[in-house]
Design a binder for these strands. Sequence first.
DNA 1: CCGGAATGGTTGTAGCTACAAGTTTGCTGG
DNA 2: CCAGCAAACTTGTAGCTACAACCATTCCGG
Lengths: 172, 172
Amino acid sequence: MTTNTPWLDRRQLRAWIRLRAMLELLPGTLDTQLRHDVDLTEFEYTALAMLSEAPGRTMRMTGLAQRTNATLPRLSHVVARLEKRGLVERFPCPENRRATNARLTEAGWAKVLQAAPGHVATVRRHVIDVLTDEQLDQLTAIGDAVLASLDPSGKGAVFYTHYDDEQTGPAS
Amino acid sequence: MTTNTPWLDRRQLRAWIRLRAMLELLPGTLDTQLRHDVDLTEFEYTALAMLSEAPGRTMRMTGLAQRTNATLPRLSHVVARLEKRGLVERFPCPENRRATNARLTEAGWAKVLQAAPGHVATVRRHVIDVLTDEQLDQLTAIGDAVLASLDPSGKGAVFYTHYDDEQTGPAS
DNA sequence: CCGGAATGGTTGTAGCTACAAGTTTGCTGG
DNA sequence: CCAGCAAACTTGTAGCTACAACCATTCCGG
């Protein structure tokens, strides 16, 4: 820890500058579109979307937090707000009395249906449609490497790899 | 705008999920390290670092905002806080009386020196060192494509391409 | 040379996130 | 069977960002 940290060479710096710029600019762009069109944050949308795909449109808070890459306090606040807006409802989990389930309401489902097309269009416009199929796969590989370093336990990976290939069994 | 937005296929979804996860997790990781070690945000660090590389360690607010991918209001607030901490000082720009210059103080310079190694180490650990040289170049290309779609005017590109190749002249 | 638009900034405020505590329920060893 | 620790949340609060408003300069056409 006494230093000896090599500086970044030009190639590395070049890549890092792009990544940092994306990190700074993309969230704002996505948020702006969603807020303007349907009054949702990208994070709120993601939470609702995850619920909409879950069996019974219901998930436990912890599970939802993992899928949305959020901390539990953050999710708790967000769900509380969504509940006030009538898009989600919470109820104690039957099997585990310290757990809480979040369920998408009908209004929440309608909201997802309303929000999805615009959001997908934005993601397409700024990300998907400007990349080649090859680049999409490269991005996937890069993401896997980076995310593995961020989450060595690999808890999140369960979800990342969920869409990789339906045939393959769970990660060994 | 009447819909007709194709949904994402598996390959596209796969890549997008990784990118979204990075968008969500990376900033927090970088912020946490910097805040813990030197009480700085990644954004604050970037601002200070940009100033430290500028001639006279001085930049106009607008220019600094562009390099840090920030809006002017945001930068204004941040610089105000940095000024209170004695890391930066502001003074009216001589050539343009409506403009403001921000200059790194000695304390600010010391702060950058103190912060840089740890931050670079973190960036290395989670990004640079987990990718191959090939992947770094791929990331650069992907970043260029995405950023171009976010900023069609290409104002930011001036900076992105600054490190690409010292030999090449300014973009045509 | 003057009225309006554009440039360059600052400030106020609402809303979201991170961090730190606190609470309840479940688990485990002795 | 119970002490203590862990799991699963919720809540309080400080701090940062976005958005909107505002003010001061500068530029530009007629």
